[in-house]
Design a protein around this nucleic acid. Structure first.
Length: 507
RNA sequence: GCCCCGGUGGUGUAGUCGGCCAAGCAUUCCGGCCUCUCAAGCCGGAGAUCGCGGGUUCAAAUCCCGCCCGGGGCACCA
Protein backbone atom coordinates (compact mmCIF):
# COMPACT_ATOMS: atom_id res chain seq x y z
CA UNK A 1 0.00 0.00 0.00
CA UNK A 2 2.99 2.27 0.28
CA UNK A 3 3.49 4.58 -2.66
CA UNK A 4 6.43 2.88 -4.24
CA UNK A 5 7.72 6.03 -5.88
CA UNK A 6 8.11 7.72 -2.56
CA UNK A 7 9.24 4.66 -0.72
CA UNK A 8 12.37 4.50 -2.80
CA UNK A 9 13.18 8.09 -2.05
CA UNK A 10 12.18 8.90 1.47
CA UNK A 11 10.93 6.12 3.60
CA UNK A 12 8.01 6.80 5.88
CA UNK A 13 7.94 4.84 9.09
CA UNK A 14 9.85 1.67 9.73
CA UNK A 15 11.31 -0.26 6.78
CA UNK A 16 10.18 -3.65 5.60
CA UNK A 17 11.68 -6.65 7.34
CA UNK A 18 13.92 -8.79 5.12
CA UNK A 19 12.40 -12.09 3.98
CA UNK A 20 9.10 -11.33 5.60
CA UNK A 21 5.69 -12.25 4.31
CA UNK A 22 2.20 -11.95 5.77
CA UNK A 23 1.43 -14.53 8.40
CA UNK A 24 4.89 -16.03 8.33
CA UNK A 25 6.74 -13.84 10.76
CA UNK A 26 7.57 -15.07 14.25
CA UNK A 27 9.46 -12.78 16.57
CA UNK A 28 10.31 -12.89 20.21
CA UNK A 29 11.39 -10.66 23.01
CA UNK A 30 13.58 -12.52 25.45
CA UNK A 31 14.43 -10.66 28.64
CA UNK A 32 16.04 -12.20 31.68
CA UNK A 33 14.07 -11.70 34.89
CA UNK A 34 16.89 -9.78 36.51
CA UNK A 35 15.15 -6.45 36.91
CA UNK A 36 12.47 -4.18 35.56
CA UNK A 37 12.38 -3.50 31.85
CA UNK A 38 14.08 -0.31 30.78
CA UNK A 39 13.64 2.04 27.85
CA UNK A 40 16.66 0.78 25.96
CA UNK A 41 15.27 -2.76 25.87
CA UNK A 42 11.85 -1.58 24.81
CA UNK A 43 12.88 0.83 22.12
CA UNK A 44 14.40 -1.73 19.86
CA UNK A 45 14.19 -5.31 21.08
CA UNK A 46 10.67 -5.32 22.47
CA UNK A 47 8.86 -2.73 20.43
CA UNK A 48 10.31 -3.69 17.07
CA UNK A 49 9.76 -7.40 17.65
CA UNK A 50 6.17 -6.71 18.61
CA UNK A 51 5.64 -4.18 15.84
CA UNK A 52 6.82 -6.42 13.03
CA UNK A 53 4.90 -9.42 14.30
CA UNK A 54 1.76 -7.30 14.16
CA UNK A 55 2.62 -5.65 10.88
CA UNK A 56 2.96 -9.00 9.16
CA UNK A 57 0.12 -10.69 11.06
CA UNK A 58 2.67 -12.96 12.64
CA UNK A 59 3.33 -14.21 16.12
CA UNK A 60 5.04 -12.43 18.96
CA UNK A 61 6.51 -14.56 21.70
CA UNK A 62 7.54 -13.37 25.12
CA UNK A 63 10.32 -15.58 26.36
CA UNK A 64 11.72 -15.40 29.85
CA UNK A 65 15.38 -16.34 29.86
CA UNK A 66 15.66 -17.70 33.34
CA UNK A 67 18.64 -19.99 33.17
CA UNK A 68 20.81 -18.36 35.80
CA UNK A 69 19.12 -18.93 39.16
CA UNK A 70 21.76 -16.81 40.86
CA UNK A 71 20.63 -13.65 39.17
CA UNK A 72 16.95 -14.02 38.54
CA UNK A 73 14.16 -13.16 40.95
CA UNK A 74 10.61 -14.42 40.84
CA UNK A 75 9.07 -10.98 41.15
CA UNK A 76 10.60 -9.87 37.87
CA UNK A 77 8.67 -12.49 35.93
CA UNK A 78 5.56 -10.53 36.81
CA UNK A 79 7.13 -7.13 36.31
CA UNK A 80 8.23 -7.95 32.79
CA UNK A 81 4.67 -8.82 31.92
CA UNK A 82 3.24 -5.81 33.71
CA UNK A 83 5.64 -3.47 31.98
CA UNK A 84 4.91 -4.87 28.56
CA UNK A 85 1.18 -4.73 29.20
CA UNK A 86 1.40 -1.16 30.39
CA UNK A 87 2.79 -0.32 26.96
CA UNK A 88 0.20 -2.34 25.12
CA UNK A 89 2.76 -4.76 23.77
CA UNK A 90 0.69 -7.92 23.87
CA UNK A 91 2.22 -11.32 23.21
CA UNK A 92 0.74 -14.43 21.63
CA UNK A 93 2.71 -16.90 23.63
CA UNK A 94 4.63 -16.89 26.88
CA UNK A 95 7.62 -19.19 27.20
CA UNK A 96 9.92 -19.85 30.12
CA UNK A 97 13.22 -21.45 29.35
CA UNK A 98 13.05 -23.17 32.71
CA UNK A 99 10.20 -25.28 31.31
CA UNK A 100 12.60 -26.82 28.83
CA UNK A 101 15.43 -28.33 30.81
CA UNK A 102 14.48 -31.83 29.67
CA UNK A 103 14.64 -30.74 26.06
CA UNK A 104 18.05 -29.16 26.52
CA UNK A 105 19.32 -32.36 28.12
CA UNK A 106 17.92 -34.61 25.41
CA UNK A 107 19.50 -32.52 22.75
CA UNK A 108 22.80 -32.58 24.56
CA UNK A 109 22.92 -36.36 24.19
CA UNK A 110 22.81 -35.85 20.46
CA UNK A 111 25.72 -33.50 20.56
CA UNK A 112 27.80 -36.09 22.36
CA UNK A 113 26.68 -38.76 19.96
CA UNK A 114 27.77 -36.55 17.09
CA UNK A 115 31.10 -35.99 18.81
CA UNK A 116 30.48 -32.26 18.88
CA UNK A 117 30.72 -31.61 22.59
CA UNK A 118 32.85 -32.60 25.55
CA UNK A 119 32.94 -32.26 29.28
CA UNK A 120 35.81 -30.06 30.32
CA UNK A 121 37.33 -30.15 33.78
CA UNK A 122 39.68 -27.23 33.29
CA UNK A 123 39.36 -24.09 35.35
CA UNK A 124 38.45 -21.09 33.28
CA UNK A 125 42.02 -19.82 33.63
CA UNK A 126 43.43 -23.06 32.30
CA UNK A 127 40.99 -23.01 29.49
CA UNK A 128 41.94 -19.50 28.48
CA UNK A 129 45.63 -20.38 28.53
CA UNK A 130 45.01 -23.32 26.26
CA UNK A 131 42.97 -21.23 23.89
CA UNK A 132 45.69 -18.61 23.78
CA UNK A 133 48.17 -21.28 22.78
CA UNK A 134 45.61 -22.95 20.51
CA UNK A 135 46.27 -26.18 22.32
CA UNK A 136 43.60 -28.72 23.15
CA UNK A 137 43.27 -29.66 26.79
CA UNK A 138 43.36 -33.29 27.86
CA UNK A 139 39.57 -33.41 28.31
CA UNK A 140 38.81 -32.33 24.79
CA UNK A 141 39.43 -35.74 23.27
CA UNK A 142 39.02 -37.92 26.30
CA UNK A 143 35.69 -36.70 27.59
CA UNK A 144 33.69 -36.40 24.44
CA UNK A 145 31.54 -39.40 25.17
CA UNK A 146 28.05 -39.53 26.57
CA UNK A 147 29.38 -41.18 29.77
CA UNK A 148 30.85 -37.98 31.03
CA UNK A 149 27.70 -36.09 30.26
CA UNK A 150 25.77 -38.66 32.25
CA UNK A 151 28.23 -38.29 35.10
CA UNK A 152 27.45 -34.64 35.06
CA UNK A 153 23.72 -35.21 35.13
CA UNK A 154 24.19 -37.54 38.07
CA UNK A 155 26.05 -34.83 39.91
CA UNK A 156 29.35 -36.64 39.98
CA UNK A 157 31.01 -33.26 39.58
CA UNK A 158 30.66 -30.20 41.67
CA UNK A 159 29.70 -26.69 40.76
CA UNK A 160 32.49 -25.07 38.75
CA UNK A 161 34.29 -28.34 38.29
CA UNK A 162 32.86 -29.48 35.03
CA UNK A 163 31.31 -27.79 32.04
CA UNK A 164 30.02 -28.93 28.70
CA UNK A 165 31.77 -27.24 25.79
CA UNK A 166 31.04 -27.22 22.12
CA UNK A 167 33.88 -28.50 20.00
CA UNK A 168 34.59 -25.85 17.40
CA UNK A 169 38.00 -25.21 15.92
CA UNK A 170 41.14 -24.33 17.80
CA UNK A 171 42.46 -22.40 14.83
CA UNK A 172 39.66 -19.85 14.86
CA UNK A 173 40.92 -16.30 14.81
CA UNK A 174 38.45 -15.00 17.34
CA UNK A 175 39.19 -16.73 20.63
CA UNK A 176 35.65 -16.06 21.76
CA UNK A 177 34.50 -18.63 19.25
CA UNK A 178 36.69 -21.46 20.41
CA UNK A 179 34.86 -24.19 22.30
CA UNK A 180 32.19 -22.01 23.88
CA UNK A 181 30.50 -23.29 27.05
CA UNK A 182 27.08 -24.85 26.66
CA UNK A 183 25.95 -26.06 30.06
CA UNK A 184 27.20 -25.61 33.59
CA UNK A 185 26.41 -26.84 37.07
CA UNK A 186 24.61 -24.73 39.64
CA UNK A 187 23.82 -26.96 42.59
CA UNK A 188 23.39 -24.73 45.61
CA UNK A 189 21.06 -22.01 44.37
CA UNK A 190 17.45 -23.09 43.97
CA UNK A 191 15.70 -22.00 40.86
CA UNK A 192 12.58 -19.93 41.64
CA UNK A 193 10.44 -22.17 39.47
CA UNK A 194 12.11 -25.56 39.52
CA UNK A 195 13.93 -25.53 42.84
CA UNK A 196 16.65 -28.14 42.98
CA UNK A 197 15.07 -30.39 40.36
CA UNK A 198 17.63 -29.43 37.75
CA UNK A 199 21.20 -28.62 38.54
CA UNK A 200 22.61 -28.40 35.04
CA UNK A 201 21.76 -25.07 33.44
CA UNK A 202 22.27 -24.11 29.83
CA UNK A 203 24.17 -20.94 29.00
CA UNK A 204 22.77 -18.20 26.87
CA UNK A 205 23.91 -19.31 23.46
CA UNK A 206 22.82 -22.87 23.93
CA UNK A 207 19.37 -22.12 25.28
CA UNK A 208 18.89 -19.31 22.82
CA UNK A 209 19.45 -21.24 19.62
CA UNK A 210 17.45 -24.21 20.85
CA UNK A 211 14.56 -21.92 21.72
CA UNK A 212 14.77 -19.82 18.59
CA UNK A 213 15.15 -22.59 16.08
CA UNK A 214 14.08 -25.87 17.61
CA UNK A 215 11.25 -24.84 19.90
CA UNK A 216 9.77 -21.58 18.65
CA UNK A 217 10.77 -21.50 14.99
CA UNK A 218 11.57 -17.83 15.18
CA UNK A 219 11.96 -16.16 11.79
CA UNK A 220 13.32 -12.79 12.84
CA UNK A 221 15.54 -12.07 15.78
CA UNK A 222 15.91 -8.42 16.65
CA UNK A 223 18.51 -7.85 19.30
CA UNK A 224 21.45 -5.64 20.24
CA UNK A 225 24.63 -5.97 18.24
CA UNK A 226 26.52 -7.04 21.32
CA UNK A 227 25.16 -10.41 20.24
CA UNK A 228 27.02 -10.49 16.96
CA UNK A 229 29.60 -12.90 18.28
CA UNK A 230 26.87 -14.91 19.91
CA UNK A 231 25.17 -15.27 16.56
CA UNK A 232 28.26 -16.95 15.19
CA UNK A 233 28.47 -19.25 18.17
CA UNK A 234 24.81 -20.10 17.79
CA UNK A 235 25.44 -20.94 14.17
CA UNK A 236 28.17 -23.33 15.26
CA UNK A 237 25.76 -24.98 17.65
CA UNK A 238 23.18 -25.32 14.92
CA UNK A 239 25.81 -26.89 12.67
CA UNK A 240 26.64 -29.37 15.38
CA UNK A 241 23.00 -30.45 15.35
CA UNK A 242 22.94 -30.41 11.55
CA UNK A 243 20.17 -27.87 11.68
CA UNK A 244 19.46 -25.67 8.74
CA UNK A 245 18.82 -22.26 10.23
CA UNK A 246 16.04 -20.12 8.88
CA UNK A 247 16.45 -17.10 11.10
CA UNK A 248 17.01 -13.52 9.99
CA UNK A 249 19.14 -11.63 12.44
CA UNK A 250 18.80 -7.91 12.87
CA UNK A 251 21.30 -6.46 15.24
CA UNK A 252 20.98 -2.85 16.26
CA UNK A 253 23.16 -0.43 18.21
CA UNK A 254 23.17 0.16 21.92
CA UNK A 255 21.20 3.00 23.45
CA UNK A 256 21.88 4.75 26.70
CA UNK A 257 20.15 7.78 28.12
CA UNK A 258 21.36 11.02 29.51
CA UNK A 259 21.54 11.08 33.26
CA UNK A 260 20.25 7.54 33.73
CA UNK A 261 22.22 4.46 34.74
CA UNK A 262 22.89 2.43 31.61
CA UNK A 263 23.19 -1.01 33.11
CA UNK A 264 21.06 -3.09 35.39
CA UNK A 265 24.02 -3.84 37.57
CA UNK A 266 24.33 -0.11 38.34
CA UNK A 267 20.67 0.03 39.24
CA UNK A 268 21.00 -3.04 41.42
CA UNK A 269 23.88 -1.59 43.37
CA UNK A 270 22.11 1.77 43.73
CA UNK A 271 19.16 -0.17 45.03
CA UNK A 272 21.19 -2.04 47.60
CA UNK A 273 22.84 1.14 48.82
CA UNK A 274 19.49 2.93 48.99
CA UNK A 275 20.61 5.62 46.57
CA UNK A 276 17.34 5.15 44.77
CA UNK A 277 13.95 4.33 46.13
CA UNK A 278 13.31 1.41 43.82
CA UNK A 279 12.89 0.40 40.22
CA UNK A 280 10.27 3.12 39.90
CA UNK A 281 12.64 5.88 40.97
CA UNK A 282 12.23 8.93 38.79
CA UNK A 283 15.93 9.04 38.03
CA UNK A 284 15.64 5.76 36.15
CA UNK A 285 14.47 5.09 32.64
CA UNK A 286 12.77 1.87 33.54
CA UNK A 287 9.36 1.54 31.97
CA UNK A 288 7.63 1.57 35.32
CA UNK A 289 9.46 4.73 36.35
CA UNK A 290 8.57 6.50 33.11
CA UNK A 291 4.95 5.42 33.21
CA UNK A 292 4.65 6.41 36.83
CA UNK A 293 5.96 9.88 36.06
CA UNK A 294 3.42 10.42 33.36
CA UNK A 295 5.19 9.40 30.19
CA UNK A 296 2.41 8.06 27.99
CA UNK A 297 2.87 4.66 26.30
CA UNK A 298 2.20 6.26 22.94
CA UNK A 299 5.10 8.64 23.46
CA UNK A 300 7.39 5.69 24.10
CA UNK A 301 6.17 4.00 20.95
CA UNK A 302 6.67 7.19 18.98
CA UNK A 303 10.22 7.37 20.23
CA UNK A 304 10.79 3.74 19.28
CA UNK A 305 9.70 4.40 15.71
CA UNK A 306 11.71 7.58 15.64
CA UNK A 307 14.88 5.86 16.71
CA UNK A 308 14.35 2.89 14.39
CA UNK A 309 16.80 0.05 14.25
CA UNK A 310 20.10 1.36 13.00
CA UNK A 311 23.38 -0.10 14.05
CA UNK A 312 24.51 3.24 15.40
CA UNK A 313 25.22 3.26 19.07
CA UNK A 314 23.39 6.05 20.82
CA UNK A 315 25.23 7.25 23.85
CA UNK A 316 23.47 9.39 26.42
CA UNK A 317 20.53 10.25 24.27
CA UNK A 318 18.71 13.27 25.66
CA UNK A 319 15.16 12.60 26.70
CA UNK A 320 13.83 15.85 25.26
CA UNK A 321 12.57 14.10 22.17
CA UNK A 322 10.59 11.71 24.33
CA UNK A 323 9.22 14.64 26.29
CA UNK A 324 8.25 16.42 23.13
CA UNK A 325 6.29 13.42 21.91
CA UNK A 326 4.75 13.14 25.33
CA UNK A 327 3.61 16.77 25.32
CA UNK A 328 1.86 16.19 22.02
CA UNK A 329 0.06 13.16 23.36
CA UNK A 330 -0.81 14.59 26.75
CA UNK A 331 -1.92 18.00 25.57
CA UNK A 332 -5.06 16.33 24.25
CA UNK A 333 -5.84 14.21 27.30
CA UNK A 334 -4.19 15.62 30.42
CA UNK A 335 -6.46 17.42 32.85
CA UNK A 336 -5.25 20.93 33.60
CA UNK A 337 -4.89 22.04 37.17
CA UNK A 338 -3.30 24.91 39.00
CA UNK A 339 -0.43 23.96 41.24
CA UNK A 340 1.13 26.75 43.26
CA UNK A 341 4.60 25.87 44.38
CA UNK A 342 6.08 27.57 47.42
CA UNK A 343 3.02 29.75 47.97
CA UNK A 344 2.89 33.39 48.88
CA UNK A 345 -0.35 35.27 49.49
CA UNK A 346 -1.70 37.72 46.99
CA UNK A 347 -4.27 40.03 48.57
CA UNK A 348 -6.48 41.50 45.96
CA UNK A 349 -8.66 44.44 46.97
CA UNK A 350 -11.88 44.03 45.08
CA UNK A 351 -15.12 45.81 44.46
CA UNK A 352 -17.52 42.99 43.72
CA UNK A 353 -19.04 40.65 46.29
CA UNK A 354 -18.84 37.47 44.31
CA UNK A 355 -16.45 36.14 41.72
CA UNK A 356 -16.85 33.24 39.38
CA UNK A 357 -13.64 31.64 38.19
CA UNK A 358 -13.67 29.26 35.29
CA UNK A 359 -11.00 27.32 33.44
CA UNK A 360 -11.35 24.33 31.15
CA UNK A 361 -10.24 20.90 32.27
CA UNK A 362 -8.87 20.34 28.80
CA UNK A 363 -8.64 23.35 26.47
CA UNK A 364 -10.30 22.72 23.16
CA UNK A 365 -12.37 19.91 24.59
CA UNK A 366 -15.75 21.31 25.63
CA UNK A 367 -16.96 17.91 26.70
CA UNK A 368 -14.32 17.71 29.38
CA UNK A 369 -16.01 20.57 31.20
CA UNK A 370 -14.70 23.33 33.40
CA UNK A 371 -13.17 23.93 36.76
CA UNK A 372 -15.46 26.48 38.35
CA UNK A 373 -15.26 28.25 41.69
CA UNK A 374 -17.37 30.80 43.51
CA UNK A 375 -15.16 33.17 45.44
CA UNK A 376 -16.36 35.56 48.14
CA UNK A 377 -14.03 38.30 49.36
CA UNK A 378 -13.47 38.83 53.06
CA UNK A 379 -14.08 42.21 54.60
CA UNK A 380 -11.05 43.56 56.42
CA UNK A 381 -11.07 47.09 57.83
CA UNK A 382 -14.06 47.82 55.71
CA UNK A 383 -12.32 46.73 52.55
CA UNK A 384 -13.12 43.69 50.48
CA UNK A 385 -10.17 41.48 49.89
CA UNK A 386 -9.66 38.20 48.08
CA UNK A 387 -6.78 36.04 49.33
CA UNK A 388 -5.06 33.89 46.76
CA UNK A 389 -1.97 31.74 46.79
CA UNK A 390 0.46 32.36 44.01
CA UNK A 391 3.88 30.89 43.41
CA UNK A 392 6.91 32.63 44.79
CA UNK A 393 8.48 31.94 41.40
CA UNK A 394 6.17 34.57 39.97
CA UNK A 395 7.26 37.37 42.27
CA UNK A 396 9.83 38.65 39.81
CA UNK A 397 7.25 38.73 37.12
CA UNK A 398 4.89 40.69 39.37
CA UNK A 399 7.63 43.12 40.27
CA UNK A 400 8.26 43.84 36.62
CA UNK A 401 4.54 44.35 36.11
CA UNK A 402 4.44 46.74 39.03
CA UNK A 403 7.39 48.71 37.68
CA UNK A 404 5.88 49.00 34.26
CA UNK A 405 2.41 49.52 35.67
CA UNK A 406 1.06 46.76 33.49
CA UNK A 407 -1.85 44.65 34.61
CA UNK A 408 -1.59 41.01 35.55
CA UNK A 409 -4.13 38.43 34.50
CA UNK A 410 -5.21 35.90 37.10
CA UNK A 411 -6.15 33.17 34.73
CA UNK A 412 -9.85 32.53 34.53
CA UNK A 413 -10.61 35.07 37.22
CA UNK A 414 -9.76 38.74 36.73
CA UNK A 415 -7.16 41.30 35.88
CA UNK A 416 -5.40 43.15 38.65
CA UNK A 417 -2.74 45.74 39.30
CA UNK A 418 0.09 45.10 41.71
CA UNK A 419 0.31 47.87 44.28
CA UNK A 420 2.79 46.58 46.80
CA UNK A 421 5.15 43.68 47.21
CA UNK A 422 5.92 43.05 50.84
CA UNK A 423 8.10 40.00 51.09
CA UNK A 424 8.83 40.68 54.75
CA UNK A 425 5.24 39.84 55.49
CA UNK A 426 4.95 37.28 52.77
CA UNK A 427 2.23 39.32 51.12
CA UNK A 428 1.61 41.01 47.85
CA UNK A 429 -1.14 43.53 47.44
CA UNK A 430 -3.13 44.16 44.33
CA UNK A 431 -6.31 45.78 43.26
CA UNK A 432 -8.99 44.53 41.01
CA UNK A 433 -9.27 45.70 37.43
CA UNK A 434 -11.62 44.34 34.79
CA UNK A 435 -12.80 40.74 34.67
CA UNK A 436 -12.59 40.00 30.96
CA UNK A 437 -9.21 38.81 29.73
CA UNK A 438 -7.08 41.43 28.04
CA UNK A 439 -4.53 40.60 25.42
CA UNK A 440 -0.83 40.95 25.83
CA UNK A 441 -0.61 40.83 29.60
CA UNK A 442 1.25 38.33 31.74
CA UNK A 443 -0.95 35.53 32.96
CA UNK A 444 -0.37 33.70 36.22
CA UNK A 445 -2.12 30.85 37.93
CA UNK A 446 -3.40 30.87 41.47
CA UNK A 447 -5.22 28.87 44.11
CA UNK A 448 -7.80 30.40 46.49
CA UNK A 449 -6.37 30.56 50.00
CA UNK A 450 -8.45 28.76 52.56
CA UNK A 451 -10.87 25.90 52.12
CA UNK A 452 -10.36 25.73 48.38
CA UNK A 453 -6.67 24.90 48.60
CA UNK A 454 -5.49 21.32 48.82
CA UNK A 455 -2.03 20.48 49.97
CA UNK A 456 0.11 18.95 47.23
CA UNK A 457 3.52 17.38 46.94
CA UNK A 458 5.11 17.19 43.55
CA UNK A 459 7.96 14.79 43.07
CA UNK A 460 10.53 16.34 40.72
CA UNK A 461 14.08 15.38 39.77
CA UNK A 462 15.32 18.11 42.10
CA UNK A 463 13.30 16.95 45.05
CA UNK A 464 9.79 17.12 46.40
CA UNK A 465 8.06 20.45 45.90
CA UNK A 466 5.40 21.57 48.30
CA UNK A 467 2.43 23.73 47.55
CA UNK A 468 -1.27 23.78 46.86
CA UNK A 469 -3.46 22.52 44.12
CA UNK A 470 -6.94 23.81 43.44
CA UNK A 471 -9.91 22.22 45.19
CA UNK A 472 -11.30 20.31 42.24
CA UNK A 473 -8.04 18.41 41.89
CA UNK A 474 -9.59 16.17 44.53
CA UNK A 475 -11.58 14.57 41.72
CA UNK A 476 -8.47 13.24 40.05
CA UNK A 477 -7.89 9.55 40.28
CA UNK A 478 -4.62 7.82 40.88
CA UNK A 479 -2.86 7.36 37.58
CA UNK A 480 -4.53 10.26 35.80
CA UNK A 481 -2.40 12.45 33.62
CA UNK A 482 -2.31 16.11 34.50
CA UNK A 483 -0.76 19.26 33.28
CA UNK A 484 -0.04 21.72 36.02
CA UNK A 485 -0.52 24.90 34.08
CA UNK A 486 2.69 26.83 33.48
CA UNK A 487 4.48 24.17 35.50
CA UNK A 488 4.60 20.90 33.65
CA UNK A 489 3.11 17.52 32.98
CA UNK A 490 2.75 14.81 35.56
CA UNK A 491 0.64 12.03 36.90
CA UNK A 492 -1.38 11.58 40.06
CA UNK A 493 0.48 9.09 42.20
CA UNK A 494 -1.70 9.18 45.24
CA UNK A 495 -4.80 11.13 46.00
CA UNK A 496 -5.27 11.10 49.76
CA UNK A 497 -8.12 13.57 49.76
CA UNK A 498 -6.53 16.02 52.15
CA UNK A 499 -3.27 15.87 50.30
CA UNK A 500 -2.33 14.88 46.79
CA UNK A 501 0.95 13.42 45.58
CA UNK A 502 1.90 14.10 42.00
CA UNK A 503 4.87 12.87 40.00
CA UNK A 504 6.42 15.43 37.69
CA UNK A 505 7.19 14.26 34.17
CA UNK A 506 8.60 17.26 32.39
CA UNK A 507 7.87 20.86 31.48
C1' G B 1 46.32 -7.41 22.85
C1' C B 2 42.77 -10.05 19.57
C1' C B 3 37.85 -10.10 17.01
C1' C B 4 33.39 -7.56 15.39
C1' C B 5 30.27 -3.22 14.31
C1' G B 6 29.42 1.85 13.67
C1' G B 7 30.77 7.50 12.44
C1' U B 8 25.12 12.36 8.09
C1' G B 9 23.43 19.78 11.41
C1' G B 10 23.35 20.41 19.19
C1' U B 11 20.39 15.57 19.26
C1' G B 12 17.93 11.28 16.72
C1' U B 13 17.11 9.63 11.92
C1' A B 14 16.24 9.37 5.95
C1' G B 15 19.25 8.70 1.83
C1' U B 16 24.43 4.61 0.88
C1' C B 17 24.65 -1.41 -6.00
C1' G B 18 27.32 7.33 -7.85
C1' G B 19 24.01 12.04 -10.49
C1' C B 20 17.02 13.89 -9.00
C1' C B 21 21.41 15.78 -2.43
C1' A B 22 25.58 22.10 -1.48
C1' A B 23 21.36 16.65 1.71
C1' G B 24 14.85 15.21 3.64
C1' C B 25 12.17 14.49 8.41
C1' A B 26 11.85 14.92 13.71
C1' U B 27 13.81 17.22 17.94
C1' U B 28 16.40 21.64 19.77
C1' C B 29 17.03 26.98 19.53
C1' C B 30 15.15 31.84 17.59
C1' G B 31 11.10 34.94 15.44
C1' G B 32 5.85 35.50 14.20
C1' C B 33 0.60 33.92 14.47
C1' C B 34 -3.04 31.73 17.52
C1' U B 35 -4.41 31.09 22.53
C1' C B 36 -7.36 33.40 29.38
C1' U B 37 -0.75 28.11 30.44
C1' C B 38 5.95 30.12 29.22
C1' A B 39 1.62 23.66 26.89
C1' A B 40 -0.47 22.15 22.38
C1' G B 41 -1.37 23.99 17.26
C1' C B 42 0.11 26.96 12.76
C1' C B 43 3.97 29.76 9.84
C1' G B 44 9.00 31.11 9.11
C1' G B 45 14.29 31.10 10.34
C1' A B 46 19.02 29.25 12.26
C1' G B 47 21.97 24.86 12.05
C1' A B 48 25.70 19.40 8.41
C1' U B 49 30.47 20.30 2.35
C1' C B 50 27.75 13.76 5.04
C1' G B 51 34.66 11.41 10.92
C1' C B 52 39.72 12.70 8.42
C1' G B 53 43.18 12.20 4.19
C1' G B 54 43.94 10.32 -0.54
C1' G B 55 42.15 7.74 -4.99
C1' U B 56 38.54 6.18 -9.08
C1' U B 57 34.87 9.05 -12.06
C1' C B 58 32.24 13.97 -16.35
C1' A B 59 29.89 13.24 -11.37
C1' A B 60 30.73 10.37 -4.45
C1' A B 61 27.38 11.00 1.75
C1' U B 62 27.07 6.93 -1.67
C1' C B 63 32.87 2.86 -4.86
C1' C B 64 38.47 1.79 -3.36
C1' C B 65 42.79 2.51 0.08
C1' G B 66 44.89 4.48 4.60
C1' C B 67 44.05 6.78 9.20
C1' C B 68 41.28 8.69 13.43
C1' C B 69 37.27 8.38 16.78
C1' G B 70 33.13 5.77 19.23
C1' G B 71 30.67 1.26 20.84
C1' G B 72 30.59 -3.90 21.71
C1' G B 73 32.60 -8.92 22.34
C1' C B 74 36.85 -12.01 24.09
C1' A B 75 32.14 -14.88 31.29
C1' C B 76 30.86 -21.72 34.04
C1' C B 77 25.71 -13.40 32.55
C1' A B 78 21.99 -12.58 29.21
Amino acid sequence: MIEEEKATKTRIGLPELPNASKGKVITRFAPAPTGALHLGQILRAAYLSWYYARRYDGKFILRIEDTDPRRIRLIYYDWIQEDLRSLGLDWDELVCESDHFEIYYELTYKLFENGKAYVCLCSSEEFKRNVARRKPCEHREKMDTVDYWENMLQCKYREGEAIVRLKTNLELENPALIDPPLLRIIETVPHPRTGYNYKIYPLYNYACIIEDHYISKITHVIRAKEHETNRVIQNFIADAFNWKLNINYIEYGMVTFEGAPAHKRHIRSALRSKEISGWEDSSLVTIRALIRRGIHPDAIKMLAEHVGMTKNDIKDMPLVTLYSFNSKVLSKIAKRIFFVEDPIVLKVYVEDDLFLARNPWIPGNEAAGYREYRLRPLTVDGKKVLNLYISREDVDLLRRAQDSKSPIRLKGLMNCRIVNIDLMNNSIYAEQLSLKPIRGVEIIHWVPAGDLAIKAFVETPSGIKEGYVEFLAQQLKNGEYVQMERYGFGRIIQNEGEVIFIAFAHK
